[in-house]
Design a binder for these strands. Structure first.
Length: 763
DNA sequence: TAGCCCGGCGTTTTT
DNA sequence: CGCCGGGCTA
């Protein structure tokens, strides 16, 4: 077996695979075969006679987990199936359900997602009489989530805020406390709770910890650079007895610090385990040398990183090109031109192309351009299937059936379809429920007492009957049957049928898709209960089903691109202010993370990488001037950018690039929906009489003369303000009397100012 | 109660 | 520019 495995591995990979006793850290650069190492290591352990049940491999995404599981199965056909490969969250959800009774937890707990969290926070603010404008809901959700990532309770937060004399912190802690109370009362856990409660349980119940330490003698963690403190503790606890812990990661690909990920986890691994073995994987199997060099040059600008030098035996040069566009439409047109010509030359299929951007807002332009071009594409992640209103509605019914005390779901569907229970009625009922410390569901019998109108009481009771009837089904009917009954008897489908609009038709389609998804779940899953279904759903994401994108160009944000690879990659919107985004250029840590994101994007490319930027971009209805992202220069294109600027000055005509006139507007946009997965049929038009080269498209763009910018205020200009002091212009919009500036002051605060009245002096 | 209008706001979001 | 949510009116 060892020989068999060795054949597939390079020396460092083999070193990692065959090191099985004690802590091991694998620094795996992009494309160096880390999944191969993990899966082969598992196979090797199994070949040594390690029981599959004692191996635990954790990842961050379901997609990664599924893929890993598949590959382990391929390598070790029988035993492989019994290795536990899952995400942190699904492992913890499983753990908490199984051990619920021991740790005094309701085993029927619901899992609240971001939207649910926001709803609860909103209630908290109302209850505590806090102005939503002063305390932004999503900010609070984030703060609470970060606290949980750090294993901090509301009282921890309160104490810390008190010491720092931090009013905002104190208030947030108060909100956190009430929020937690609401979750506890309902029996709901948010994502952070899944990890935190698991860690707390392991800490509080030594017998439980002992049991799991004994059970999982071998632990492997993928993407270790993205672990937060709670996940770190989870791993540390589980591995506490045998120390057979193998972590794999790349500090250069740490892009989730804003979500609580703590790179020091990977940087300090050798401190945590002094006897740890460390292996660096540096041979890249994905990209051509040019791409690797460019990506390496970019990430080298970060100071605090573990030095590594990716290299490749790949002899194909590949290419890295800068694509300069006039504006965002031109950028999209050029991307499409390049894709089109490469597919027309039969060099590549559409699925060989990916378009990455920094913000979701950028996807719109591409969406429109692709539809216009009749080029099939798929946008990942803008709106998840399970985030669609109609799906959430049906899911809310299912959640309520599972747990009628779920106030968030209750409020979502109490008047959907309309039952004549409006805002006022609901508000009074909720107030009553809070007063009596019961759920809204439990408050229904007291509706009259709560001051609701007769009509509302009648409607409320019939709603109660409806849900009760569904609940009675729970033990005898499958999830699918329940769902079907809900869709019909709630009146939901009838409502949509009556509406009879394109939107309502698409909603009906989606609901059908949901039913077949449930059907699929029942065929695949071992736990076929409603609870099992709800758990599974709350832990999946859109990218998990990326495989469907065959024959289509893939569009997504850079964050979602991690772990993927494509022959041709377009990195778009490479402009200062957009990427690196906003004010991140002024904070060295933020900038470093942006740079890592750039590095991740670049290293997705196998053969050709296009760095795209537009001199002008309309954002939120305002047209802004841009300068190319520093990352283009850092990738080694300083001279080329200088050349581009010269071409700009000379050119006159604009927007007559290749085949932009060739695409007419009759391209099939019939099936177009503004949803996560947009599919458009390819318009089979063979009327291309001239196919230009890459270069012609790339060089053709800057046919544009920017109007002279006469204002003395430029991005980067140092200014003084009579009140705020010295600062630097970091953004500018509009012109003349409307010229608006964003100035970052030395105090650290930034202000939006109207140049006309701001009374700025240039330093 | 429900529908319309207006004003504010807009970075990324593995689970 | 478009979306969402709050508040006002029929």
């Amino acid at each position: 077996m060892k020989d068999l495995l060795t054949k597939n591995l390079n020396p460092s990979q083999a070193e990692a695979v065959f090191f099985t006793k004690g802590p091991l850290i694998i620094f795996a650069g992009a494309g160096t075969g880390k999944t191969r190492v993990i899966t082969h290591r598992i196979a090797y352990l199994l070949s040594l006679g390690v029981t599959p049940w004692s191996i635990l491999a954790v990842t961050f995404t379901n997609k990664a987990a599924t893929e890993m599981k598949q590959r382990v199965n391929d390598l070790a056909p029988q035993a492989g199936a019994n290795v536990w490969v899952s995400t942190f969250h699904s492992f913890c959800a499983y753990f908490l359900r199984v051990e619920a009774k021991k740790i005094e937890l309701n085993p029927d707990f619901l899992i609240y997602d971001f939207a649910d969290q926001k709803n609860v926070i909103k209630d908290c603010l109302r209850e505590l009489n806090i102005d939503e404008k002063k305390f932004k809901i999503s900010t609070i959700v984030n703060k609470i989530s970060r606290a949980k990532d750090d294993l901090k309770s509301s009282s921890d937060m309160a104490v810390a805020a008190d010491i720092d004399d931090d009013f905002v912190g104190t208030t947030t802690a108060t909100i956190y406390q009430l929020y937690q109370k609401k979750l506890d009362r309902v029996g709901a856990l948010d994502f952070g709770d899944l990890i935190m409660r698991t860690v707390i349980a392991l800490q509080q119940y030594p017998a439980l910890l002992e049991h799991y330490q004994e059970k999982y003698k071998y632990i492997m963690v993928d993407e270790y650079q993205d672990t937060n403190h709670a996940q770190y503790m989870f791993v540390k606890l589980l591995a506490g007895k045998y120390h057979n812990v193998c972590v794999v990661g790349d500090d250069d690909q740490s892009i989730y610090s804003w979500r609580g990920a703590d790179v020091t986890n990977i940087l300090n691994f050798e401190k945590d385990y002094p006897d740890a073995k460390s292996v660096k994987l540096e041979q890249n199997y994905r990209s051509t040398p040019k791409i690797l060099t460019a990506a390496g040059q970019v990430v080298k600008h970060n100071s605090e990183r573990i030095d590594k030098q990716l290299w490749t035996q790949n002899s194909d040069d590949g290419s890295v090109s800068v694509v300069t566009a006039v504006n965002e439409n031109d950028e999209a047109a050029k991307v499409i031109d390049l894709i089109l010509l490469k597919t027309l030359r039969n060099q590549y299929n559409l699925s060989d192309f990916a378009v990455f951007y920094r913000t979701n807002a950028q996807s719109r332009t591409f969406e429109e351009a692709f539809i216009k071009a009749g080029m099939p594409f798929v946008i990942i992640g803008t709106l998840r299937f399970y985030d669609r209103a109609e799906i959430k509605d049906i899911m809310a019914y299912l959640k309520l059936i599972h747990n009628p005390n779920d106030n968030v779901s209750f409020k979502r569907i109490i008047n959907i379809p309309k039952r004549g229970i409006g805002k006022t009625s609901l508000e009074s009922l909720e107030k009553f429920a809070i007063l009596k410390d019961i759920s809204i569901w439990q408050a229904i019998p007291f509706a009259l007492e709560a001051g609701l109108t007769k009509n509302a009481v009648v409607a409320l009771n019939s709603f109660r009957q409806l849900v009760k009837a569904f609940t009675d089904l729970k033990n005898n009917a499958s999830v699918k049957e329940i769902a079907k009954k809900v869709i019909t008897y709630s009146g939901y489908s009838k409502d949509l049928e009556n509406e009879n609009t394109p939107e309502s038709k698409s909603k009906i389609e989606n609901i059908r898709e949901l039913v077949s998804a449930i059907d699929n779940f029942e065929h695949r899953s071992t736990d076929k209960t409603l609870a099992g279904y709800l758990t599974q759903v709350s832990l999946i994401s859109d990218i998990d089903s990326l495989d469907e994108s065959k024959g289509k160009v893939t569009l997504m944000t850079l964050h979602l691109a991690k772990g993927l690879e494509f022959n041709n990659v377009f990195l778009c919107g490479l402009e200062e202010g957009l990427f690196p985004i906003g004010k991140s250029a002024f904070d060295s840590e933020d900038l470093a993370e942006e740079r890592r994101l750039m590095y991740v994007g670049m290293t997705r490319a196998r053969k050709h990488l296009y760095l795209c930027w537009a001199t002008e971009r309309t954002v939120y209805g305002e047209t802004k001037w841009n300068i190319p992202s520093r990352f283009i220069e850092e990738a080694g294109f300083k001279d080329e950018l200088a050349e581009k600027k010269q071409v700009f000055q000379k050119s006159q005509n604009f927007g007559q690039g290749f085949n932009r006139t060739r695409w007419n507007d009759t391209g099939n946009s019939g099936g177009y929906k503004k949803y996560a997965k947009v599919e458009v049929k390819y318009r089979n038009d063979n009327s291309y009489d001239y196919i230009p080269s890459d270069d012609e498209i790339i060089k053709d763009a800057p046919l544009y003369t920017p109007t002279e910018d006469a204002s003395p205020y430029k991005i980067g200009t140092l200014v003084s303000h009579p009140v705020f002091g010295k600062g630097k212009i970091i953004e500018k919009n509009g012109a003349g009397n409307d010229l608006k500036l964003v100035v970052l002051f030395e105090t650290g605060q930034w202000k939006k100012l109207l140049a006309r009245i701001a009374n700025l002096t240039i330093d």
